[in-house]
């Protein structure tokens, strides 16, 4: 019944809001850090479809991963030990519109800092250095990105810059874009594509889940992950950068890297920092 009332209010508010928009304060442009201090929480957009970074645990319904732990640690570092991070699920496809729409304060979701994105968003200092690679079925003839010729199909995820990168690196291959990494990996297993491309960290997570699939060919791009926020949120950006430095200095950052990536074969934890 609570939902009923809420929605009734929502429908009425919808009409009103449309009229009052011009007068209302825009959530995307208000000072996110000041607001976060007021409510003692930061609203983070995190992945729920990406093993190692942000994955839904079916048993608990909670999201777990490196990005999630980073979000929690950064929240406490910025707002103090009593503060809690609020986690909202995003995909590569939905994170930018959700951030720009003001549903989130900031996004920590395997997001590469690119010039195109910097035109519409601000980024923190990189917190993780990934590189794009390929995931294929064991024994696949595809060994490197050079093997992606005409007639091969490579699977990517909508809204990730890896689809643009692979189109540049292998212009003849057909790129199939799916809505999230869970769907993309399922499609690879179904044989919808010959390879799946995205950042190596994400691919190692998939390989860990199903060892019949392996990461090949090394990395062919550099993908520095940044924490994204709306343009003009300078106070929040500086606070996050400061907190990142503190976490690195205290060794908390290295502990988190080792917790999630320490036992991944072929993955050099030193490279990411």
């Amino acid at each position: 019944m609570k939902l009923f009332k809420q929605t009734l209010a929502m429908v009425v508010a919808l009409g009103l809001a449309a009229v009052l928009t011009a007068c209302g304060q825009d959530a995307a442009s208000r000072d996110a850090l000041a607001h976060a201090k007021e409510v003692n929480t930061i609203v983070w957009g995190v992945k729920a479809d990406t093993r190692l970074f942000g994955l839904m645990n079916v048993k608990t319904g909670k999201i777990q991963g490196f990005d999630v732990d980073m979000a929690r640690a950064l929240t406490k570092q910025i707002l103090g030990p009593s503060a809690e991070a609020t986690l909202v699920q995003v995909t590569s496809d939905t994170r930018v519109p959700m951030l720009k729409g003001g549903n989130l304060d900031t996004v920590i979701a395997t997001m590469t800092v690119t010039p195109e994105r910097q035109k519409v968003l601000d980024f923190s200092d990189p917190y993780f250095n990934a590189g794009q690679s390929l995931l294929v079925k064991k024994g696949s003839p595809i060994k490197t990105v050079a093997d992606l010729k005409a007639g091969t199909k490579v699977i990517g995820v909508q809204g990730s810059n890896s689809v643009d990168n692979v189109q540049k690196a292998a212009p003849k291959t057909t790129v199939l874009q799916l809505s999230d990494y869970a769907q993309a990996f399922t499609a690879l297993k179904s044989g919808q594509g010959d390879a799946l491309t995205t950042d190596n960290g994400i691919l190692y997570g998939m390989s860990k889940q199903d060892p019949n699939y392996v990461v090949v060919g090394g990395t062919f791009t550099k993908e520095p992950y940044g924490i994204a926020m709306n343009k003009g949120q300078t106070a929040l950006r500086l606070a996050i950068n400061q907190a990142l430095k503190e976490l690195k200095a205290s060794g908390a950052y290295t502990r988190l890297v080792n917790k999630w990536f320490g036992d991944i074969p072929g993955f050099d934890a030193k490279e990411v920092e």
Partner: peptide
């Protein structure tokens, strides 16, 4: 979900 926020209507 994605376009209305632009005119100030933000829904969960």
């Amino acid at each position: 979900y994605f376009a209305l926020p632009k005119i100030g209507i933000r829904l969960g």
